[in-house]
Design a protein around this nucleic acid. Structure first.
Length: 545
RNA sequence: CGGGAUGUAGCGCAGCCUGGUUAGCGCGCUUCGUUCGGGACGAAGAGGUCGCUAGUUCGAAUCUAGUCAUCCCGACCA
């Protein structure tokens, strides 16, 4: 294992020599992936640990990305007929007890409010006083309290469907936390809907899974394998759970979003009933679906490299940074004037997103006038992952040119372009980058997804070559599976591998070809890889976060 | 909750084993100068009651006990 001392030495040498041969982030992904992840967050100034255990402070650059995620998803939710509302942070304990599986699933990770007052204690400190007759749970998710309100709002079939979303924070008291991936408190969106028919609720569940998939692929540039969760991995209380399972650069899966068909379980628990056209009283069918700030973790682990964060242009808080080079005496005024007018011209441009009929937004252009050396300033933006950095010095002013670097190319590579040409093409360059990021991630996912018809090969695939210092290994494995939970248990124990999902037979999936090939192998191999029993379908196996 | 480790300046660390006057180093920060289109260099500064509490001692960052916190590996999870 890499000692901290080694890493420090590496850092010192990289800053002492020219940076040409070294990278901004140490350790590299290859050397120590988990530590690289933490370093990227620090170097890009996305977030940091807070004094409250397991909770993070999301800093402006990270929060800017979240705001863009919110903005786009919010539009999609509204386009699909949903309305935003807000429900309380506190849930009466009895509410959580209403759905048996749900209680079991969340009981161990709830923060509980038991008092409503503080008093001065003997030692001068504050002591909780005023015990509550019924404790409140800080919401780990809002099915129960939203269900209670739905029960009041739904009377007739005419009240359905009820399509509600809320943007909120939730708290889950996990044992171990990691910035963005698993924090005690996190930000998310939770959609909750109630329907008159099972078919309609099922359609809603899959529709929202589509919304998430489209968003991840088109905006976050993260290729998605999606499918249904196995019984063991299902949301507590759900009938079916569907998830998005992108591959991170260490080839592990990250559950990036879920959509649940809740059947009538929660409607029964919360008494959501309506009078149907035939005059009979019926329970509604409900769904819930959510994505969280974990998406930013997915963004980091999909696109960031050994030089830091990489933000896909469509969700970047700033698209273009202009850095004036004003060190030559007597040139400052004309350089600054040129920079200001360039910024103005670029800000007047729309960022045209392919497939969107209307321009999505203005170009976000930042003029960085900080009193820093050029190289230092440049690297700070590389580490943040801004798509395009422009350097403007006297030479460019005289030539009427723009000298720029783009984050999808090597840091040394810079291009000079006539000013008007750049302004006219800025949006297209960003879109080209967006496309490149997605393609790179898609190729990586495909290159590290394999089909298996031999159990030993499966085990070899997931066994690190060096047990004491496990290297990045494995990936996604596709194999026929009988669905037996004891097999899942064994794989978890042997290899720490789980069934991520039963992937959809989905033409749009990045692994559609592999799925087809596996389906087409000799029928004698179409049995469960582990038991030889009849296959219930192809499952996606992987190590996961 | 089980196993392991660590708390010394904003960050990263040394010093502790073998107690001894103003506790060091690197980065960062401030000022000045020379620099500057790939992470500069020099000089001068600012910044710490060594996690907390008690004990041993003439004397504790250093020894002892307790306590709190954090991190890593498990189990649990979006």
């Amino acid at each position: 294992m890499n000692s901290k001392k080694d890493i420090q030495t590496a850092n010192v040498s990289s800053s002492a020599t020219t940076a040409a041969s070294t990278t901004a982030i140490s350790p590299s992904r290859q050397e120590n992936y988990p530590e690289w992840y933490q370093e990227v967050i620090k170097a890009a100034d996305l977030a940091e640990q807070s004094p409250a255990r397991g909770c993070m402070v999301i800093k402006p650059w990270g929060y800017g990305i979240w705001e863009n995620i919110q903005h786009v998803l919010n539009q999609r939710f509204k386009e699909t007929g949903h309305q935003n509302a807000y429900f309380p942070l506190f849930i009466p304990k009895s509410f959580l007890e209403k759905e048996a599986e749900h209680v079991e699933g969340f009981a161990k990770e709830c923060a509980v409010v038991t008092h409503h007052r503080l008093e001065k204690g003997e030692d001068g400190g504050l002591v909780p006083a005023g015990p509550l007759s019924e404790p409140y749970i800080v919401r780990p998710t809002s099915e129960t309290i939203i269900g209670a309100m739905f029960a009041k709002w739904v009377r007739s079939h005419r009240d359905l469907p009820l399509l509600i979303n809320q943007w909120a924070n939730v708290v889950r008291w996990e044992m171990r936390t990691r910035l963005f991936l698993r924090t005690t408190e996190f930000l998310w969106q939770e959609g909750h809907t109630a329907h008159a028919s099972e078919a309609e609720a099922r359609e809603e569940t899959l529709k929202m899974l589509d919304v998430y998939t489209d968003f991840c692929e088109q905006y976050l540039a993260i290729p998605i394998v999606r499918g249904e969760k196995s019984e063991g991995e299902r949301f507590p209380g759900a009938v079916n759970t569907y998830s998005l399972e992108p591959m991170m650069q260490d080839r592990k899966a990250l559950q990036a979003g879920t959509s649940h068909f809740l059947g009538q379980n929660f409607a029964r628990a919360s008494d959501i009933k309506y009078l149907d056209q035939d005059g009979s009283e019926k329970f509604a069918w409900t769904t819930s679906w959510g994505v969280s700030t974990r998406l930013i973790g997915a963004l980091i682990m999909t696109h960031a490299d050994d030089n830091g964060m990489v933000v896909p242009p469509r969700v970047a808080p700033t698209h273009i940074v202009i850095m004036p080079m004003t060190h030559k005496p007597g040139t400052e005024a004309k350089v600054m004037e040129y920079c200001h007018s360039l910024q103005k011209d670029l800000q007047a441009c729309k960022y045209n997103i392919e497939g969107q009929t209307q321009a999505q937004s203005q170009l976000q252009v930042h003029l960085d006038t900080r009193d820093l050396r050029g190289g230092e300033k440049m690297w700070s933006w590389i580490k943040k992952g801004v798509p395009i950095c422009i350097e403007i010095g006297p030479r460019d002013v005289d030539a009427g040119a723009v000298y720029f670097y783009r984050r999808d190319q090597q840091p040394g590579k810079k291009t000079s372009m006539p000013r008007m040409e750049f302004i006219n093409n800025a949006s297209a360059i960003l879109e080209e980058m967006q496309h490149n990021f997605f393609e790179n991630a898609r190729k990586f996912l495909c290159a590290n997804t394999h089909t298996f018809t031999n159990k030993d090969e499966f085990y070899t695939f997931f066994t690190p070559k060096n047990a004491s210092q496990t290297e990045i290994h494995g990936g996604f494995a596709l194999a026929h599976f009988c669905g037996d939970p004891t097999v899942e248990e064994k794989l978890k124990q042997d290899l720490n591998v789980t069934v991520r999902c039963i992937p959809f037979n989905d033409a749009r999936s990045p692994i559609a070809d592999l799925m087809r090939n596996l389906r087409n192998v000799d029928s004698c191999l179409n049995n469960c890889l582990f038991t030889g029993k009849a296959s219930k379908g192809i499952a996606l196996f992987a190590k996961a976060y």
